[in-house]
Design a protein around this nucleic acid. Structure first.
Length: 278
DNA sequence: GCAATTTGACCTTT
DNA sequence: AAAGGTCAAATTGC
């Protein structure tokens, strides 16, 4: 963590600047358009991702390209492979758990497409949970090497709610643009008060850092920004979608986004363990 | 016929 | 050792 520390600091400073910008916008309530806010958020996220990449570039995850594993695995005879260098440390990855509550109305069965394309690669029955957990990965893993993954699990209490846990950063370009081009939202609302209620679902985000190093000493920087989920596109697939970017490796920093919105509160907490520096 | 999902085995982490 | 996560053949849908 010495070589690119200057660059990291530079990126962090940039991120801070963006956050300041965003805060100013929130104070003034309606100074920026939704568009501009999104742009700032995107910039901020990419900046943070850059930092994460810089910090973790020394320990990339060797995998997900062309694993030279011994051909047959799922069905073939027991070919055991002790490749401990592969998924050595999953613990150093940040995790976001987002509770997506689907509305109770009819027709809200559709997925919440956030602009990323996901491919399901597994499903597992979880002990405590009543419903199985689905494992998804960005469809651009092969084409763009995007390492983002997520897992979706239905809440046992609320059949209409699902927990979506994101892992890894999206390095792909958003391309599954809905036909209405949500990035250019029409200036329809004058009160930025409850525009999120137009959507028939509520999103609450709730991430806790697992006890990676049991050392969350420094209070994370906190700021707020409007909870503005993307315009849901009622695509016909049965996949539940949602997406936020995440970081890859041992960063050693943590943060929190706290949004005291009116009707729903969206809290973002993320953290990373310090680089083990093995 | 191709691409995405399903599903059970294999592997990692706790 | 058990639970969780991933891989890939088989299956299904487009």
């Amino acid at each position: 963590m010495e070589m690119g520390s200057n660059l990291v600091l530079d990126e962090l400073a940039r991120g801070r600047e963006l956050v300041t910008k965003l805060r100013a916008d929130i104070e003034l309530t309606t100074s920026f358009s939704v568009n501009a806010r999104r742009a700032v958020v995107e910039d901020l996220l990419s900046s943070l991702e850059k930092c994460i990449s810089m910090v973790t570039e020394s320990s990339p995850r060797p995998q997900l390209t062309e694993s030279p594993r011994s051909e047959g695995r799922g069905r073939g005879p027991g070919v055991v492979r002790k490749d401990s260098e592969m998924c050595k440390k999953r613990r150093t990855q940040a995790k976001w758990t987002r509770k997506v509550r689907l509305g109770t109305g009819p027709g809200v069965d559709g997925p919440v497409d956030d602009g990323y394309k996901w491919r399901k690669y597994g499903q597992k029955d979880i002990l405590e949970a009543k419903y199985p957990r689905g494992y998804f990965r960005c469809s651009h893993l092969k084409t763009q090497g995007c390492l983002a993954t997520k897992q979706v699990q239905r809440s046992e209490d609320n059949p209409s709610a699902v927990d979506v846990t994101y892992r890894g950063a999206h390095t792909c370009r958003r391309e599954s643009a809905p036909p209405q081009a949500p990035d250019d939202a029409p200036p329809q609302h004058q009160n930025s008060r409850d525009d999120s209620l137009l959507l028939s679902f509520q999103t609450g985000l709730n991430v806790k850092t697992e006890g990676l190093e049991e050392e969350d000493s420094s209070p994370p920087l906190s700021f707020s920004f409007p909870s503005k989920p993307e315009v849901p596109t009622f695509s016909p697939s049965s996949t539940l979608d949602g997406c936020f970017v995440g970081g890859g490796g041992g960063g050693g920093w943590s943060g929190a986004f706290v949004s005291p919105a009116t009707s729903e509160t969206t809290n973002y907490y993320f953290s990373m363990s310090p680089a083990p520096n093995e």
